[in-house]
């Protein structure tokens, strides 16, 4: 597809890539592990969006890649959750699983960065 519509689709795809750059910044900063993993999941979802925008402009075969990415990107999140259980094979929802400490005292945005030293896996 040539012309203005193709250029517009590619421009939108570039815009999504810019937001993925912001996600990579979040992976760098953290501070918690869940922050980094959620940002990586955003890269996966954003990648699906980029491919769907590329498909009409470049070729419909990109939708196949988008399908595979959409199905498998969550696999890393499952692996992360599993690896952070005490024996590496559990489920955080199980009755005896350790839970995040409750937010007590209430969340104070000015000192939120101090939470990183209580950070759990």
């Amino acid at each position: 597809m040539t012309g203005w519509l193709g250029a517009w689709l590619l421009l939108c795809a570039a815009g999504v890539l810019v937001t993925l750059g912001a996600a990579l910044w979040r992976v760098w900063r953290g501070p918690a592990r869940a922050d980094r993993m959620m940002a990586a999941q955003l890269v996966g979802t954003g990648g699906v969006a980029v491919l769907m925008l590329l498909a009409p402009a470049q070729g419909w075969a990109a939708l196949d890649v988008a399908l595979v990415l959409a199905i498998l990107a969550a696999l890393a999140a499952v692996g992360f959750v599993k690896a952070s259980t005490p024996d590496g094979a559990g489920d955080p929802e199980e009755a005896d699983a350790p839970h995040d400490p409750p937010l007590d005292p209430p969340l104070d945005l000015a000192t939120d960065s101090a939470r990183s030293d209580r950070d759990v896996a």
Partner: peptide
């Protein structure tokens, strides 16, 4: 959904 269209 997808054919063997050229993907240059």
């Amino acid at each position: 959904m997808t054919g063997a269209d050229p993907f240059l």
